[in-house]
Amino acid sequence: MSVDNWKTPTSPSVGSSGKEPIMLSIRNLHVSVEGDEILRGLNLEVGPGQVHAIMGPNGSGKSTLANVIAGHGDYLVTGGSITYLGRNLLEMPVEERAREGVFLSFQYPVEIPGLSTAQFMRSALNSVLQARGEAPVDAFDFMERAGRHLDLLEMDRSFLSRSLNEGFSGGEKKRNEVFQMAMLEPKLAVLDETDSGLDIDSLRIVARGVQALRTPRRSMIVITHYQRLLDHLVPDFTHVLAHGRIIRSGGRELVRQVEERGYGWLLEELPASAPAGA
């Protein structure tokens, strides 16, 4: 396969047709962490309602991409741009991105002793609602909304009164992430290895929860190592990330190819000096 064929005909360029606004457009993104360049010229376009899967070997820069989109301060953008709904995402503080509809499901959700999930979620929900010009929810509204989503994720009401993620099992933490996503109704959700560390039942519940949140308008970037989440949550596009660049894009069939053959064959095809993904 030649370099020219790296982009498949189904390459995500929907936004550029002019009709639909581009949800997210990443151009030639370079990112360093503590002086090491992790992302080296990454390009990605995500249209409304699209689900993009991003796969790749360990250390390829997947989590870096997720954290940069969310605005983590440890990641230094040294070049390129990210445009979100026509705005320069990189200029927006973390919380503004969240209020404008960017949601990151953390690979390692943070524990905050003493802070109840309910207290946290209601504060977060109200800041997001306020940014959208909507009225804040009172405790009763909140419990009603929360209740619906908890049921979907097979989570007990007692979740809400527990300290945020403290003492949660791996599965509970990930379900809590999806619960928060459901509550905050983002426009763009980035799921960073939401399926890692889950047993088969938790995976089913989490995948079903995410699938239920899929709408014609909501875009998702699903970062994963495995096919198993993508069996439940079928992507429109699949990308393989290696050495800080997207080295292969394709449709859902690419997922199976990677699962069967690993990444080796893709890496071998990569010319040493080619500006991959450019």
């Binding site: 919380e95 209020r99 990151l104 953390f106 003493g114 207290q119 940014a131």
Partner: peptide
């Protein structure tokens, strides 16, 4: 970072962590 990612301002995030700490 986690709290701000969920839309809270830096001050509110500090307030929440501190309140949790002092609960």
């Amino acid at each position: 970072f986690y709290l701000r990612q969920r839309g809270l301002s830096a001050d509110d995030a500090v307030g929440l962590v501190v309140n949790g700490f002092a609960r």
